[in-house]
Design a protein around this nucleic acid. Structure first.
Length: 499
RNA sequence: GGCGCGGUACCCAAGUGGUAAGGGAGAGGUCUGCAAAACCUUUAUGCGCCGGUUCGAUCCCGGCCCGCGCCUCCA
């Protein structure tokens, strides 16, 4: 089963396979750690996570590199405003970033290089460019890439810059550049700014240069896939290509994946619109980490996703359905298959499960169609539930269905329930950092209700029911419901779960 | 203005040249002390609008309307 993925470079859906050594080498642009990540950031990381998980599921090992940009203009500005040293400032937000990735169950890339630890490689790259006549130094000590040195500039974003090479719009601060379109590869430092003393002068790397240097350092001069948010296509990725290919005379990344932006409640997310959310904001409002994960990956990565609170509620319900089904299959004592009498039912059930499995794999193979993959599994859930209700499900069927569910979860990862723990951590963070204002009251109340306290009330209710004291039983049920605990009476006793 | 994406039921959202997946919500039912869960039934003669190609178009082509993205470091 080979993944076919849209390649921005060619504009076509193409097979994505390792070019050598059997390991797929991929690079994804990581965060600039200057603030808490917002859900738009996480959509991109989540989609890349879906990609790497599916590759692994289909037997393709992955070497995934993601940079951490820990020096840039925003970092310098924000750290100064916060009165913190750059290193301490970025460490704080890098840690927060990884906490958020953990909550969303985004797998850790194999390599996580920091920009500040690869200055030497970046300087080397500038020197190579200079030797090739493609980089020049300006009076203030900054270095620029000469766009005219790379004729195929624009091949990724399909931009033809020939007509606008030296347009009227010249940035006053950058009057020294040979051409308005030339971009910085090395920035001279203003007094007091973070800087390195290097062979090309004192300064700090340009953002584009970081990604070129670190991707090639860990993946080689040519590698299989480069991914990022759609906004990075131009100019960031275009610049990476120009620098890298000029320096090496080899093709940079073969395949390019771009994740579309999301909208929030129908509008582009922005602080001024009031629709700007970090992961922590949502967790503290009572939305589950798993629901956020599912909502963000259910729409295929090349489509604009409209992120809404209704969508989050929908995802929560969908996950409950999956988890309930999973519990049912796992915990019911299904009759042994040897006892199966008729052969006809057997065939039908195998067919349902086999179809679900192949539909699931086909959907993801087809440019990561997560919506269709999800549908394949839900169809199986409904049909198997029906068969189970009619008493025709046997142990071997349950096992086979669970195996499909396991494949699904190897990519989607929403069945195992760590939601309470994630919310707990968000609450701890809010308390520690004085952001109590973000916490929803219901979330706090639910967090304070221990499993033991619930068990005690459930036991009392069972006792009341046995004595046919339904008034008391209902009172307890309502009390728990108000704190987000749902009870289900079944033949095998009472089940409870947190909503 | 240049380049690109999209408009599918109440909401979200797949999809195909031959007549509409899936999820959520709603309604009715089975089950239950009542609920919940699960299941069943039900909700687009219809896929932005107008033409064209075709035996046949939601899917192909053209035009129009609407929404969105990128076009100076925002994922």
């Amino acid at each position: 089963m080979t993944l076919r993925l849209f390649n921005t470079l060619t504009g076509q859906v193409e097979p994505l396979t390792p070019s050598e050594g059997g390991v797929l080498r991929m690079y994804a642009c990581g965060p600039t750690v200057y603030d808490y990540g917002h859900i738009g950031n996480f959509r991109t990381f989540l989609e890349v996570d879906v990609l790497r998980r599916f590759l692994r599921l289909t037997g393709v090992p992955v070497r995934h590199v993601m940079n951490i940009t820990d020096v840039d203009d925003k970092i310098i500005r924000n750290a100064a405003a916060a009165g913190m040293a750059i290193g301490a400032y970025t460490a704080k937000y890098e840690q927060a970033f990884f906490e958020d990735l953990d909550a969303l169950k985004v797998e850790r890339p194999e390599v996580l290089p920091h920009a500040t630890e690869h200055i030497g490689k970046m300087v080397e790259l500038v020197q190579k460019l200079e030797a090739a006549g493609a980089a020049y130094k300006t009076e203030d000590g900054s270095w620029y890439f000469r766009l005219s040195a790379f004729p195929s500039y624009g091949k990724l974003s399909k931009k033809d810059l020939s007509g606008m090479e030296d347009g009227a719009r010249v940035d006053v601060d950058e009057y020294e550049k040979d051409s308005a379109r030339d971009f910085a590869v090395w920035k001279s430092a203003k007094p007091g700014e973070m800087a390195w003393d290097t062979a090309i002068g004192r300064g700090r790397p340009g953002w584009h240069l970081e990604c070129s240097a670190m991707s090639m350092e860990y993946l080689g001069e040519s590698f299989d896939l480069h991914a990022g948010g759609e906004d990075l296509m131009f100019p960031h990725h275009e610049n990476e290509i120009a620098q890298s290919e000029t320096a090496t005379h080899k093709p940079f990344a073969r395949h390019w994946m771009h994740v579309r932006f999301l909208l929030v409640e129908g509008k582009k997310m922005s602080k001024s619109e009031g629709n700007f959310f970090t992961l922590r904001d949502l967790l503290l409002k009572g939305y589950k980490a798993s629901a956020i994960r599912l909502a963000l990956i259910s729409v295929p990565y090349r489509h604009q996703l409209n992120f809404t609170f209704d969508g989050l509620t929908e995802a929560t319900s969908a996950i409950n359905r999956l988890r309930t089904f999973h519990e049912r299959l796992k915990n019911t004592a299904w009759p042994k298959s040897a006892m199966r009498g008729s052969v006809g039912a057997d065939e039908e059930i195998s067919q349902i499960i086999a179809t679900a499995k192949s539909d699931f794999f086909n959907a993801l193979s087809n440019d990561l169609n997560t919506a269709e993959a999800r549908a394949a599994v839900f169809e199986m859930v409904r049909k198997i539930n029906t068969i189970a209700d009619s008493g025709r499900l046997f142990e071997s069927d349950a096992r086979a269905a669970l195996a499909v569910l396991a494949d699904f979860d190897a990519v989607f990862d929403v069945i195992r329930d760590d939601d309470r723990e994630c919310t707990r951590r968000a609450l701890d963070w809010a308390q520690a950092s004085g952001r109590m204002d973000l916490i929803d009251e219901g979330v706090l109340a639910a967090a304070h209700l221990s499993d033991e306290a619930i068990e005690t009330l459930v036991a009392e209710r069972t006792q009341a029911k046995r004595q046919r004291n339904f008034a008391r039983a209902d009172e307890i049920r309502n009390q728990l419901a108000s704190k987000g605990v749902v009870l289900e009476d079944s033949k095998d006793g009472v089940r409870w779960k947190r909503k």
